[in-house]
Nucleic acid binder design. Structure first.
Lengths: 211, 211
DNA sequence: TCCCGTGGCAAACAGTTGTTTACTGAATCC
DNA sequence: GGATTCAGTAAACAACTGTTTGCCACGGGA
């Protein structure tokens, strides 16, 4: 990683990116036990081992750093969603795969997930809006994938979008549930999430037939 | 209100409760634009117009005040849920009633709803746990009501509980969606929430028949 | 090689924070 | 009616905050 940026960007910019990333990492770590609106600039620079004033070379204030963290956090989630959507299997299988993918993602990036769950309704407007905008894009993407499936024939675009919203909300809920779960609770959560998805999928298959 | 407490408790305790409530109110107001972990003790006492040290006569620290706010906020939500569950009508009707009840509740107690949505995954452990415990009780209550309906015959207790969880999560999601919505968006949100509930209810009616 | 651009530093700034201390005055109890 | 309890006060404490200033060292283009 370091070597590639080194080669491409020159020592100068590479070093800058490095401390920028160090600031993001330190902030993310500190945010495991508090929320963004109480995270201090000095607190972050202290962890990185850099002067407080250096912060301003990278971000105007903590809100701007927060927005950068949103991109980083939801970026990793995005690739996971794409991967799940790309699978073209039968409903029963894709559900278990999805839940397992979410569990794995939480296990791999717990701080990212915690940050999103915490700041989605948190005290910093700019960050809330960044998360909302990105989640809306996820919803659109899911909707497009759903619309391409044969089960969705005859569905209005509005209905497809509301189902996608349900899935995205459920995804975030499940991820945050995994987050605060002890290892032995994980199975129960995965189980519940799977059953909930199955019930939704059942409602989906009977949507226009019954109403 | 003041007169009743006055009569029952004596001037002494009544006054104490009054400033305690003033602290809670001030905190709730300040929390509309920040999160609990960044709310300062002095900030609250300043708004109330009381000396900083007076705070300790009522709460050990801000976390304890937060827990008190949880009880207050979810208390009002609790009566709303009870009211909805008490109605024994046909599925189609109860859905629209419920969504309208949620919308009304958010309109009436926006600060309470915002507080819960924000601190449910917020930075203060004690508050998170208090919210989680209370929402779990809500889930149990909903589950009991669902189990009593004829649609749930043959359902395992586990399945009923997972459906109740889905409803509770959806409730919180919908409430927080109403919260950040402009008045003209309210209708669309209510509409989407209603359709989502209808789809879930559809899946519910086909649960054991298909799987 | 020299010079410019710039990431990072040290120091100082005025404010703010949570917490402790000793106190006052009024409601309560006997 | 006198003693007591206790909600609220004022003042002081050290510790911390975000932001500005002038400075230095050094990588990169000429």
């Amino acid at each position: 990683m370091s070597s590639s940026t080194h080669a491409t960007l020159g020592v100068r910019q590479a070093q800058k990116l490095k401390t920028r990333q160090a600031l993001l990492d330190a902030a993310l770590r500190l945010l495991e036990e508090q929320s963004l609106s109480s995270l201090g600039l000095r607190e972050v620079t202290r962890v990185v081992g850099v002067a407080p004033a250096a912060f301003y070379r990278h971000f105007r204030d903590m809100a701007e750093l927060g927005v950068a963290l949103v991109e980083e956090s939801l970026g990793s989630l995005h690739v996971m969603i794409r991967a799940v959507l790309a699978e073209q299997q039968e409903a029963e299988e894709v559900i278990d795969r999805s839940v397992e993918a979410v569990a794995g993602h939480v296990r791999r990036h717990p701080a990212h997930v915690r940050f999103i769950a915490r700041e989605r309704h948190g005290g910093v407007r700019a960050v809330r809006e960044a998360i909302a905008a990105e989640l809306e894009r996820f919803g659109d993407e899911v909707a497009a994938a759903l619309a391409a499936q044969e089960v969705s024939q005859g569905w209005s675009a509005e209905d497809v979008r509301m189902l996608a919203g349900l899935y995205v909300d459920h995804l975030v809920m499940t991820a945050s549930a995994f987050l605060e779960a002890s290892p032995e609770e994980e199975r129960a959560i995965a189980d519940t999430a799977g059953r909930q998805l199955r019930l939704i999928s059942l409602g989906r298959r009977h949507w226009r037939a019954a109403s």
